[in-house]
Amino acid sequence: MSRHLLSAADLTREDALLVLDTAEEMALVEERTVKKLPTLRGRTVVNLFFEDSTRTRTSFELAAKRLSADVINFSAKGSSVSKGETLKDTALTLEAMGADAIVIRHAWSGAPVNLARWVHGSVVNAGDGTHEHPTQALLDAFTMRRRLGRVEGLKVTIVGDVLHSRVARSNVLLLSTLGADVTLVAPPTLLPVGVESWPAQVSYDLDAVLAKSDVVMMLRVQRERMGAAYFPSQREYARRYGLDVRRASALHDDAVVMHPGPMVRGMEIAPEVADGVRSTIVEQVRNGVSVRMAVLYLLLGGASPAIGGDA
């Protein structure tokens, strides 16, 4: 049966902990002279990116290569996709080329779910529209656990454009599975209708929740949102929801500041905070490779996957 990682909701608590524990071992490879494992030799991983994301694509590419998989980068630009080939045709083509796994980034929510219905190999969602980005949530949880020793019971505050954020959706699902206590903070315009059904608290007041937070995760806020009247100006957004030096000083000593990148410095986060000791931003990038190695190993390393959901 074809098994995939399409949503953070595909992961049980045991699955998620298995990924994090496996990633711990994968992280050791970074410290070795030979940063390569033979585990996925002869397997083919396709990075199918319909949206530019050098950071995520590189992370998956490195993860697959560290495990000795063959990696094909298939970007929608300059390919037949831009000439009107459908996602289904592309999927069947890649499968005919022997893809054991397809890592897909797509501008439409749900595209990985569609893809999973058309291929026999594993599908890994590397970010779909405004839906989910499960490996980002895994690397965030991994980073929290490395810094703070646990995820369960942590008070995690996610700040910013929750409405359009796949990172927020995956993090809320995964963190609640792992027993963290999540609070979303955003202007009401940037929270989806229906957010009250999510396993998270909601607040409009960043200052009120900061002192209690163990983790503050800042989401990117695109300036284009101003044009659509989600908020009046960059200045007002930064004043009410930006993590500036004054606000960061309200955090307790061990609290960490996270950002999935790319950042808009000065908008949602002050440069001093982004580069400060609390910041895990560089670690998140490094941990991303380890977590993605773990996911690829657990999906592709055996006769059948050890984690993930059915399509």
Binding site: D128, G129, E132, R166, V193, S197, W198
Partner: peptide, 18 residues
């Protein structure tokens, strides 16, 4: 807009049609 705006659209990340 892609689907009814509500609990389901919030989870699916599809733009709501209120």
């Amino acid at each position: 807009a892609q689907m009814n705006e509500g609990v389901v659209s919030s989870r699916l990340g599809l733009t709501g049609w209120p």
